[in-house]
C-alpha cells in the first residue's frame, strides 16, 4: 500500500472538517442529531478497535491468563476507570503486559 496515498486521503478527511464552520460558517448549520451522535464516536470507534485486538490477538478468540493482550487491556481499563489518569493506566498495564509476556 502506498502510505503517501493514505496520508493524502487522511489530510483531505481532516482539514475540510476543521475548516467547515471557521471558513464557511455563515452557510452551515450544525445538525443537532450529528451533535448528539458525536458524543458516542470515540467510545464506539475505539472499542470496536480494541475488542478484536484484545480478545483474538492471533485471529482466534482466546480468553485465558495466557492472553497478555487481554489481561493488559483489562488492567489499562480498570486503572483508567478508577484513577482517570490515562498515562498511569498505560504505564501500569504495560508493566503487567510485559511481565505476562516475558516472565
Amino acid at each position: 500500500m502506498n502510505h503517501w496515498l493514505v496520508i493524502l486521503g487522511m489530510a483531505l478527511a481532516t482539514l475540510p472538517v476543521r475548516a467547515s464552520f471557521l471558513v464557511f460558517g455563515h452557510r452551515l448549520v450544525f445538525p443537532p442529531l450529528l451533535h448528539r451522535a458525536l458524543h458516542y464516536v470515540p467510545a464506539a470507534v475505539l472499542t470496536a478497535l480494541i475488542v478484536p485486538m484484545a480478545l483474538a490477538p492471533k485471529g482466534e478468540v482466546d480468553i485465558s491468563l495466557g492472553n497478555a493482550y487481554l489481561i493488559g487491556t483489562l488492567v489499562a481499563g480498570v486503572v483508567a476507570f478508577a484513577s482517570r489518569k490515562t498515562l498511569l493506566a498505560i504505564v501500569v498495564s504495560f508493566a503487567v503486559y510485559g511481565a505476562l509476556r516475558y516472565f
Binding site: I50, A54, L74, A76, A80, F81, S93, F94
Partner: peptide, 13 residues
Amino acid sequence: FAMLATFAAIVAP
C-alpha cells in the same frame, strides 16, 4: 499493545 492500552485508557473513564 501500546495502542490497545492507550485506547482502553481513553475509553474506560
